[in-house]
Design a protein around this nucleic acid. Sequence first.
RNA 1: GGGCGAAUAGCUCAGCUGGUUCAGAGCGCCUGCCUUACACGCAGGAAGUCGGGGGUUCGAGUCCCUCUUCGCCCACCA
Length: 742
Amino acid sequence: MTDSQVTTTLPPQYRPDGVETPRYHQWLADGPFHARRDTENAPYVIMMPPPNVTAVLHMGQGLNNALQDVLIRFERMRGREALWLPGTDHAGIATQNVVERLLATEGLTRFDLGREAFVERVWAYVRETGQTILDQLKAIGASCDWDRTRFTLDPDYSRAVRHTFVTLWEEGLVYRGHRVIHWCPRCVTALSDEEAEFHDADGKLYQIDYPVVGQPGRSITVATTRPETMLGDTAIAVHPDHERTAWAIGARVRLPLTDIELPVVADHAVDPEFGTGFVKVTPAHDATDFEIGERHDLPMPLIMDPEGRMHDPGDSAGTRVPADLVGVDRDAARKLILERLRAEGLLGKTEPHRHAVRRCYRCGTVVEPRLSEQWFVRMEPLARPALEAYRAGRLTFVPERWGGVYENWLEGIRDWNISRQLWWGHRIPVFHCEACGEEWADREDPAACRACGGTALTQDPDVLDTWFSSWLWPFATLGWPDETPDLAYFYPGHTLVTASEIIFFWVARMVMAGYHFLGERPFETVCINGTVRDTEHRKMSKSLGNGIDPLAVVDSFGADALRFTVIAGAAVGTDVIMDPDDLEATFAPGRNFCNKLWNVGRFVLTNLEETDGEGRSRTVDDGPGRGGTGEEGEEALADAWILSRLEATTAEVTDAMERFRLNDATNAAYRFVWSELADWYLEAAKPRLRGDAPGGARAREVLRLALERALCLLHPVVPFITETLWQRLPGREGESLVTAPW
RNA sequence: GGGCGAAUAGCUCAGCUGGUUCAGAGCGCCUGCCUUACACGCAGGAAGUCGGGGGUUCGAGUCCCUCUUCGCCCACCA
């Protein structure tokens, strides 16, 4: 076969389109991604962070999943039974919001449909879109065990969630509490502390005068950033030991705009140095004030409805919210109240005030602290083993510094509000008997009251926080609470690759759940990958329009080019900067390298095919050391050199992989292929490859060996092109690199 | 208010345990080349007082202190 013939088979430019998709389908058909339970062999397990069921792949997930795929493919080639378990998360609030927005375009709300119909509607939507992101993962080459794909609302998974709740209930770790929680008036649900994110905001600090009862002309001035909550005040507080405000303790003031009288109480929570030293106390709309209220046994009227509109609580002391303010949104109410205070001469000075405001992590609405009855998990007992495990080195973070973040959070752990006033999610399995008032959590839907046998039962209307199901991911996906063979073999897992944003939401809670329910850590290493940003270092996001669609990159440059660029560019723990306006420049390194590898392959294959119709490179010993001339000595040196570089590169790549320095591993293989094999050895070998030049067989042997090893080392990073070349190697037809020995 | 990270070539970044991979890579730029694997390429080249200042050391991008500028996380001063 001549050069030109080969050239017609393998085009000089690597074109991934038309190659990658069939290749992936072949893998799916052959099944090498499916993990078997081979008790003779050690497993290696990565649980994929399940993307939101309605999501489309973004570059951050492209990076995250490319990293996971490199690790899983590496360990698979090293012979371990590698399980990468994929799946999706029902993502309570996020998914419900998406469907509610769709309904809104039809002029409907979820209440128009009713609970059952709405949930059915969400299911219909999810059934339609749920597969999208998993298909996109296939497009980037993810070697997941698709046979084990899970969804957090699967029947088995739901059973695990319910079992968890009931178990915690039985252990006394789940309880119902009446307290001020973060409330999103747009999503109309409670949020956990973690779901209410801090954002700096330029606000104003308003001073308001509260006339002192019985002392005409005298008033107490308070400072507040949220004047609209004043109507919910039930006291004024001062620091107990501060002389400037001491006179007021025990006095009574009139709540402006009302006829209600408030006491002045002394409480240590007050910072006498801030503002005026007098604090208005609104127990139902502020967590600190709630605690003051509890200590002083104050009334706790709610002055807003769940959607953040003013609402009169019907206080026995009198009207709190003037009739014309009822139903007014809290923002509008603020303006009206300020106007009215100004008109009455009770509004003091107003100064700019920069402070942190909590916003709903799903919709960005400013969170309203709200007194409410919710379900909580007592976290301290769960946190202790998770903390100890980290301190004892049984759980490590890469880079290490994230361990400090994890530790810090666990040290200051607070109880977890797990109930959400939503319809999409796992319904809280608590039942209430109308007849005798018995209330209990149950693993099965009860037909009758467990105490009196009455059949008039109601179930708690709320659902559980999405993360209350996600935290079971490492084992609920394997069949827990049943003691399945999968659970026995694949748990505990090994590596978790995820983003720093969800260390609290997800990582720490998985560790807690792992220890609490199985007595064992869910994974040993947590790799925190960087954030994908644009050239101005802004996080890529839909709203900024600075995102890069991974699938568009796959279409233009191929999955391998995407993977290579992203992996080689992602130094451990640092952010990845990409230019959404210049995809050509951004992905050129990956594309160029694939093309280089392709051409090295073409060159080697051409030479192998030229000399040996059988397909195997000749092993005839006409190699170095035979003649002993100076020229042959140089050739032998060249052979020995590239082979030694091969050894060194293999060691370097392996070591870097083991230390999760995937960029170093990738770049080491890159340097070997480009600078050493292509630029140097290939050129050095060319004279021997012409016609019947002496030493030709040996050179071909070395070339083949070098190419084969390079393909192995690069397969985890660029699986498509390496597999394609591998199967063109004489004698390798039909063999797969996926399970080739490392 | 606490904590963490970053600052190295025009751009994006490596540089791990101070010292022969220490001043590097890719992209861009300049000069030659369609040399029969690759112009998504080859050969060569220009380009950086390693953010400022101080210190430790025989020796400092590398360790310490400090300042500046960005970024992130945590936090119940209304």
